[in-house]
Design a protein around this nucleic acid. Structure first.
Lengths: 248, 248
DNA sequence: CGCGCAGTTGAAAGTTTTCAAATGCAGTGG
DNA sequence: CCACTGCATTTGAAAACTTTCAACTGCGCG
């Protein structure tokens, strides 16, 4: 059977995240706020450790482990999740290059979630005590960190709204458009990309059954809004997608 | 018709929040971390302004107004909410005495939500620039504020989980037990209390229709788990309620 | 005393989940 | 290189839950 939307050749060159394509937001912070004298892009903080690469399925950290560091994604992608005693899992976020992982754990001695690599990835490790010390010596760094945390709260609030008020279709559109915007920020294509996560992870994150995710994506594909073949996605009609988000 | 659970007389003395019954968490911070030399309970920061009382329905601040201060609830209760262009509202939190409002706005020049009094309330105003200055001069204050924000992220994550994975009954049980715990923290009864918010607000917050909230409460009342008469609530069988939260 | 909003209740409709099964894809070992 | 195995994805049909719509009740306040 002929697909309504044939995935164009261009998807073969769709974006991958296994490239270091984005400076970590801490480096951005440093170069923009505090170190105009340093060379562009130079990650100057001697206390920040460049981590090894990490394979798909491996942990950056597990819940309840002693909290020592934040992590900045250099390449690849991660998911964070909570896990109940009964094994029930709730994915709390997907992290792309430049994102910082662990901000929800700074008030405890242990990590409050687990972080797992979705694909071959790399990262930087930022020891928190030293970051705090650095921030206390530099009010702009402190201010920036308040901002980063505040933004994390807002992101979570947006998700709350999504879960509380939006239909399955709307949730998935928001999800796709959010990913699209984040890829764009990273100078990657906003319309042709590869999902770093499985359908079941999308469903878990958005509070939907896998089957629902699959059905909605199929429906969008059939009506020409997107092309989806496995993890390769093309947003074919962005304005129609945006329209869906405006359903009252 | 005879109610299965008659609300006991004691409810007549159930807790109200229109009393200043809890020090704000900033004061707690100060006395515990930085000012052991000061007298207990003395709110020493000259930059913190004691606000007037505020009537039910009045605003602490509206979304998009210039962000200048955090607010600490002294008495009463507040709700915060987002509002879309189309008028759709999403309540993002309920705040009791001691809670701090506005943490999600520190990364922008304007408030990212509106805050409205649910009843006659009072508050303190904490100008943020001065708080930042204070924090930068005192690393323990800075640390505490990272903690407070981190906790806010976690609370939001918990809500996400609730909305994403839990049934109407489970959501309402969590909501009631959460309120109960917060009243207890404030040295009020954990089992007899008055809801500061309307059913419709509970529904909005939990992603449920008002009717569903009403039906679930009625069901709990009939099965003897709680007594609910208007906003007066008695948790009659806490262990049974806890049991419901464990449904996988 | 009556208006008006908050809360409750019933029945029907709608959306999403659950269960079951088929298909597809990728990595492994022969 | 291919068959095999296991997991991911898709699809269909029935079931479950929640919402919507409509109507009624009750309480608070002027």
């Amino acid at each position: 059977m002929a697909a309504v939307n044939v995935i164009p050749e261009s998807r073969l060159s769709s974006n991958r995240l296994n490239l270091s394509c984005f400076k970590c937001s801490l480096c951005n912070l440093c170069s923009s706020y505090t170190l105009n004298t340093k060379e562009e892009g130079d990650c100057f903080h001697e206390f920040i450790k460049r981590g090894d690469t990490i394979n798909r399925g491996e942990y950056l950290f597990k819940e309840h482990r002693t909290f020592e560091s934040l992590f900045s994604v250099r390449s690849g992608a991660f998911k964070t999740y909570l896990e109940a005693e009964n094994g029930e899992v709730q994915i709390t976020g997907f992290y792309l290059p430049g994102d910082i992982i662990g901000l929800d754990s700074t008030n405890t001695n242990t990590y409050n979630c687990s972080a797992k690599a979705l694909e071959l990835s790399s990262f930087c490790e930022i020891p928190f005590p030293q970051l705090e010390k650095f921030a206390s010596e530099n009010s702009q760094v402190q201010h920036h960190f308040f901002s980063v945390m505040s933004a994390e709260i807002q992101t979570s609030r947006q998700l709350t709204w999504l879960l509380s008020k939006k239909s399955a279709e709307e949730r998935i559109v928001f999800f796709l458009l959010n990913l699209s915007a984040r890829f764009k920020q990273r100078n990657l294509s906003a319309t042709h990309f590869r999902l770093p996560m499985a359908r079941i992870d999308i469903g878990n994150y958005l509070g939907l059954a896998v089957e629902t995710v699959s059905r909605v994506l199929t429906r969008f594909h059939k009506t020409g809004l997107i092309s989806a073949q496995g993890r390769e996605v093309v947003l074919s009609d962005v304005s129609a997608l945006v329209e869906i988000t405006k359903h009252d």
